[in-house]
Design a protein around this nucleic acid. Structure first.
Length: 160
DNA sequence: GCCAACGTTGGC
DNA sequence: GCCAACGTTGGC
C-alpha cells in the first residue's frame, strides 16, 4: 500500500495493555469488542499496513504508549455470537448479517516515553485530536500532522 | 468512587 | 420520530 492512514485505539491496561499485545502470540491480537457505530466505521476503513496509536485509558496517567500495525482488515467479530462473552455478545447480531467487525493488529513498538493526555491537551498541534474532542470514541482517526507531532514529542525529553 | 458526556433503548 | 431513562466510558 502506498501511504498508510493513522488511527488511535483505546484500551484499559488493566484489561489489555500494550505489554499484553507485545507478549501475545506473533505479537498479534484481534481488536474485538468494539460496540459503537462510529468506531465500527473507523475499523471498516482500516487498511492493512495502517499504523495505530495504542492509548491506555483509565490509566495512571492515561497516555499514548505505543504503535501497532493493521495486519488484517475488518471481518465479522466472532465475539458478537458468543453467548458466554458477557461484554461482547449481541443477541441481535445475525450470522448472515453480522453487526460488528474487528481487525487484527500487530505490535510495532513502545514509545520511548508515553505521551500523556494532559500533554496532548497542552500541545497546540495535538489538542484538536479526536482523543480530546470526542468523548467515548474508542477507535478514531489521527491526521498525519498529529501522528508526527505526537511521535516527535515521544522522542523528546519530557517537558519541565 | 463520582459523575459528566453521550450513545442506545424503548415507550408513546 | 421524539425524548426520557438508562447504561457505559473514561477523566478526575
Amino acid at each position: 500500500m502506498a501511504v498508510p492512514s493513522y488511527w488511535l485505539v483505546k484500551t484499559e491496561p488493566e484489561v489489555f495493555s500494550l505489554d499484553d499485545l507485545r507478549r501475545a502470540p506473533r505479537q498479534t491480537t484481534r481488536w474485538d469488542g468494539v460496540r459503537n457505530f462510529a468506531a465500527r466505521g473507523h475499523l471498516r476503513a482500516m487498511k492493512k499496513g495502517d499504523l495505530v496509536f495504542v492509548y491506555h485509558s483509565n490509566a495512571k496517567p492515561s497516555a499514548v504508549v505505543g504503535i501497532a500495525e493493521v495486519v488484517k482488515e475488518a471481518y465479522p467479530d466472532p465475539s458478537q455470537f458468543d453467548r458466554k462473552d458477557e461484554m461482547g455478545y449481541d443477541p441481535k447480531a445475525k450470522r448472515d448479517a453480522p453487526t460488528w467487525v474487528t481487525v487484527d493488529v500487530r505490535f510495532r513498538e513502545a514509545l520511548p516515553r508515553p505521551v500523556a493526555l494532559d500533554e496532548v491537551k497542552r500541545t497546540p498541534a495535538l489538542r484538536k485530536m479526536a482523543l480530546v474532542r470526542i468523548a467515548r470514541l474508542s477507535v478514531q482517526p489521527v491526521t498525519a500532522a498529529e501522528w508526527n507531532a505526537a511521535l516527535a514529542l515521544a522522542r523528546k525529553k519530557p517537558p519541565a
